[in-house]
Nucleic acid binder design. Sequence first.
DNA 1: TTATTGTCCGTACACCGTACGGAAAGAGGT
DNA 2: ACCTCTTTCCGTACGGTGTACGGACAATAA
Lengths: 246, 246
Amino acid sequence: MGTVRLLWRRERPLPPRPGRRPTLTVDAVVDAGIREADDRGLHDVSLRRVAEHLGVGVMTLYGHVANKAQLLDLMVDQCRLDMEWAPLSGSWRDRLGQVADENLTLLTRHPWLAHVETERAVLGPGTLGKYERELGAVEPLPLTDPAKDQALALVLAFVRSSARALEAARAERSEETPEQWWLREGAELAALGIEERFPLASRVGQAAGAATHAAADARSAHAFGLGVLLDGLAPARPGRRPRVGG
Amino acid sequence: MGTVRLLWRRERPLPPRPGRRPTLTVDAVVDAGIREADDRGLHDVSLRRVAEHLGVGVMTLYGHVANKAQLLDLMVDQCRLDMEWAPLSGSWRDRLGQVADENLTLLTRHPWLAHVETERAVLGPGTLGKYERELGAVEPLPLTDPAKDQALALVLAFVRSSARALEAARAERSEETPEQWWLREGAELAALGIEERFPLASRVGQAAGAATHAAADARSAHAFGLGVLLDGLAPARPGRRPRVGG
DNA sequence: TTATTGTCCGTACACCGTACGGAAAGAGGT
DNA sequence: ACCTCTTTCCGTACGGTGTACGGACAATAA
C-alpha cells in the first residue's frame, strides 16, 4: 500500500470487502510500534518484537504495512498527530518559544523521535498539521516564504539537538555511568599532557561537561540557545533584513 | 583495547613484540572503513565488507579494533584529524563563519559523518584538536565557559542539519528521483483538499521545497540560517547579554 | 455449496555483529 | 636447528535482523 494512502487512512475508511476480516488495524500496529520504541528505544524496535507484542506472527505485519521504514513513518506522523495544542498567543517571539516548548515536550515523551532519520518528508496529517500550526508562529516575520520555512527548521533542529542532550544528561541509568567510564578511560587521557596541548578545550570542556551533566544546567543551556536563535531572528535590528532565495 | 589508547595510538607506537607480525595496521582498517562509508553510505558499512575490501577475513578486524562502534569512533576522529586548517582571522564573526565553512566542507566530503550517532564524546586527537581550534573562534565573546561551548555546539548542530539538507538536495542520483516519487504519491495527496485545509503549509512548503531543491538556494538557505545564528550571538545588542550556567 | 478474494503466518534466505578456538607465523633461548 | 612462547589470522557457528514466498484458512458473493 502506498505510504500516502496509509498516512491518510482516516480520510477514506475502506468499504467492507469479501475475504477473511483482518484481526488487526494499522493503528494497532503503529501504536504497538510506538510503545515498543518508547519502552526499549529506537534501536531495539524490531518487527518480531512488535508482532510478539501484538500476539501475532511476524509476517502478519506485512499485511498492514509495507515494510519497517514505512512503519516508522507512520509512527512519526502519529506522534505528531497526538500532540496537544493550546492556541498560539502573544508576540511572534512568544509563539515561537511556545512552538519550541511543544517540540521539546514531544521529544521528551518520545525520545526516539530525535533519532529517527526520515529520508523523505512524511506528508501525513500529523506532520502537515504540525507544520501548518508552526508556520503560524513565523508568519508575522518580515521574511520570504523560503526564509520562514528555514527559520522554523532552524528552531526545530535546535530543539532536536537540545532534546538529545537532555536525554544524555538523564541517562544515569545507562549500563555504565559516566563516572565509571571516566575512571576506565579518562586515566589514560590525563597521562597525555592534554591540558598543555589543548588548554582551551580542557578548560571549557571541563566546565561545559560538568554543567551539561546536571540536568538543570542542560535546561538552562537550552534556554540560552533558544534565546540566541530568537534574538537572531528578530527583525528590529537595523541595517539587516534576513533574506533568502532567488 | 581501550578506545582512548587506540585513539591516541600515534603517541606511543608500541615496541616490537614476539609472535606473528600483523599484516594490517589500525590505520588501514580505519581508512578502509572511511572509504567504504564514503562510497556506499553509513548504512551499508559492514565489517564483512570492510574486511573484504582489505582482502582479509572478517574476524581479523577484531584483532585491531574492539567492535564496530569503536571502529566508527576511530573513523570519526580520523576525519577530524584530516581537516585542513587555515589560521583563523578577523572578527569573531568572521572566525565563526570560517569554522562553519570548514565543518560544512568536512560534512560534504564525508556525508555519513552527519548521520553518525556517537553516544559518548570521542576524546581523540582529531576531536580534541578541532574543539580547541573552534573554541578559539568564540573565545572573544563575553560568555561564560559553558555558554561558549553551547554557542559553538549551536553552530555545529546547525551546520550538521544544513549538510543533511544539502545532501538530500544533491540526491538526484538516488534510486528514485523526487519527481518520480511525487508522481507516484503526490497525486493522492492533491485529492485530499490539502490546499484548503493547510493553506500556510501548502504555500510555504511549495516555495521552500522548490527553493531547497535548487542546490544554489539550499546554499543560500544555509547562509541565511548562519546569519541568524551569528546575529543572535552578537553581544552588541543592548539590554541583553547571553548567559548560562550556575 | 462453490468460487473468489482477502488475511494469517511457517519456513527460508541473506545478511548482520561477534564469541570461540584451532592453525599459522615469527622471535628468543638452547 | 629445534623447541617454546606469544601473537595474529580466520573458519565456523550462534542468535539476531528484514523480508520473499506460498500454503492454510476464513469470510463473503454467487
